[in-house]
Write a protein that binds this DNA or RNA. Structure first.
Lengths: 235, 235
DNA sequence: TGCGCAATTTTTGTATACGATTTTTCCGTT
DNA sequence: AACGGAAAAATCGTATACAAAAATTGCGCA
């Protein structure tokens, strides 16, 4: 149920740091913390009642996943993917995820189908309650769940990072601010899985990612956080 | 020229830690440190004349790249990829690298061609001198150089981790211990790039990775470091 | 009033200290 | 001699302290 365990079998930030990673990651994925937000070590440490040492470890782990950017002598910030990177992330997903969907269809079990169904239900629920952030993070978790069913640890870890960054990209560049990020694609995917139709799963996943990509507003424009002057400019 | 900068634009381990990462990574990639070797924080710190704090940061960064595995309360070790993971890594490379080769062929410049040529020369050189470890690490660097030419940062970072782990996999599972890991594939690739032949580049890269994969001895067998008993077993 | 420089404050980089866990060693018992 | 357990050593997890760098503030001057 966790919207995105950071772990990928290698690092496992020790003790408390892991839990802090999860907390911060969850908050970012649910859009409760905006891209660009500063995450100072003291602040994080105080918030979770640990020393800077632990906070630092957590932030560095998040940085390796791409959710957080650390600037030397300046500190950690929630990442703000550039338009360029947004394209690259979705191109990478277009390359990887259809293959994963195919493998998942091949390895599908009834039990796994049930899990996916519950994912979709939870997503629906959150959407109905207007909790868009939660719905979005569950939507990402759905993609990750498929990768886990495909049982490909290496690709799953890669996808984890791509999905996380996608959440930041959506926060920054999604076209229609709060309207429907709900698509019926997930249902269609589930249906393909139900039929164990590998080619259909692959194809549906492909167009789903392409759809997401084209739902972004990636024209060149400013690139930078609007300054206060911009915000209060009268026009 | 560095056989594998760990950096991927997000983390940049602060100050000294970055340099230590490079040093350790280089040593592992050149097979001067075997998979399974323990890297204690004190040892690393003493070796490079820094405190454990910095050594720890470096080890954690390496762990996130997959070169090092950290076990709670036990410490850091050079990773020992399982057979399972070995397959996954090469399957992932088979998925990603042909595409990267295509994009590189598309974006190829004369200057970039020169760089690739020099990579091959250096590789050749090292091989001629019998410095197998160095030759192997340069071979990995060649693949990364291609990704950089394709100018896809996201995929390059992913590939970086895959190539690093491939080096560990080769150290553990390569069939003919010191004979020819020299293939003419790199020359063939360079030739395709020279002609800007995207499809050829893609295809050659594909079979190159498949060749590497099948050059591994990935039958089930023990999985674990042979015990002393195994080593001295008389049969 | 607006600009620029300097002092202050905040925040990160690194070192060190101490407690907790694990591993090793050593010794007594069977 | 072999086994088991307790003491000792080594190693990691975390907190804290101090130095260095950056950001902020405030003052003086034009």
């Amino acid at each position: 149920m966790n919207p995105g365990v950071i772990n990928g079998t290698y690092s496992l930030p020790p003790g408390r740091a892991l839990e802090i990673c999860h907390q911060i990651e969850g908050a970012i994925l649910r859009h409760r913390i905006r891209p660009g937000t500063k995450l100072s070590e003291d602040e994080v440490g105080d918030t979770f009642g640990v020393s800077r040492t632990v906070a630092r470890t957590a932030l560095q782990a998040l940085a390796h996943g791409g959710l957080v950017t650390i600037e030397r002598n300046r500190g950690a910030f929630v990442s703000r993917p550039t338009i360029r990177e947004a394209h690259e992330v979705f191109e990478a997903r277009t390359l990887i995820e259809p293959r994963i969907a195919r493998m998942a269809a091949k390895a599908m079990t009834d039990e796994a189908l049930g899990r996916l169904q519950r994912h979709i239900d939870a997503e629906h629920d959150a959407f109905a309650k207007g909790e868009m952030g939660l719905a979005l993070s569950l939507s990402g978790a759905f993609h990750l769940a498929i990768a886990e069913i495909a049982d490909q640890k290496v690709l799953t870890q890669i996808l984890h990072s791509l999905v996380s960054r996608s959440s930041l990209i959506i926060a920054l560049y999604w076209k229609r601010p709060d309207t429907a990020c709900e698509s019926h694609s997930h249902h269609a995917l589930l249906d393909a899985f139900l039929r164990r139709d590998q080619s259909a799963a692959e194809e549906i996943m492909n167009s789903h990612i392409v759809d997401l990509h084209s739902g972004l507003d990636l024209i060149d424009r400013d690139e930078n956080e609007p300054s206060l002057a911009d915000v209060f400019a009268t026009s």
